[in-house]
């Protein structure tokens, strides 16, 4: 018996976009406002999980061709490499740098290496969360 999930599917179509947008907002904003790598990553993961739930694993996998195990590893690697960058410049491991730059369109913007580190965190969280959920749901 195939469950009638029209409502779920139509809501998901909209909700996934909203959640993803919101999670990117949370992630980018994390330096000054509530948010950051953990939250951004987790909410992205929840958007992806929602897609899986409503559309099924096979269909989503055709459209999002990402190996989430590798994504988690890449996240950890990014964090590690930003840490090493400090060492290259003679600072202790994981020293973060930041500065203010005048960029076109954005105006005076703060660029911080912490953001790259946070990207690593976010990727690791997304990779792990989705990987766990996927592994369990595949096991039928």
């Amino acid at each position: 018996m195939k469950p009638n999930d029209v409502i779920l599917k139509s809501v998901t179509r909209v909700a996934a976009v909203i959640i993803s947008t919101f999670s990117i907002y949370l992630f980018m904003n994390g330096h000054h406002h509530p948010g950051g790598g953990f939250i951004g990553g987790l909410s992205t993961a929840s958007a992806i999980v929602l897609l899986y739930l409503s559309f099924g694993i096979e269909k989503v996998r055709e459209n999002i061709r990402v190996d989430f195990k590798k994504l988690a590893a890449i996240g950890v690697l990014i964090a590690l490499v930003t840490g090493m960058a400090g060492v290259v410049f003679g600072k202790p491991f994981l020293s973060q740098a930041f500065g203010y730059y005048d960029l076109p369109i954005f105006g005076n913007t703060e660029l911080a290496s912490a953001l790259i580190f946070d990207t690593g965190v976010a990727l690791a969280v997304i990779g792990t969360a989705v990987n766990i959920i996927l592994s369990i749901s595949e096991d039928r």
């Binding site: 000054h32 406002h33 964090a79």
Partner: peptide, 19 residues
């Protein structure tokens, strides 16, 4: 350079823990 103290602790002050 962060206004969110919690985030600053996570990514900068205690970055090692987070990593």
């Amino acid at each position: 350079g962060a206004k969110n103290i919690v985030n600053a602790i996570l990514v900068d002050f205690r970055g090692f823990d987070t990593m």
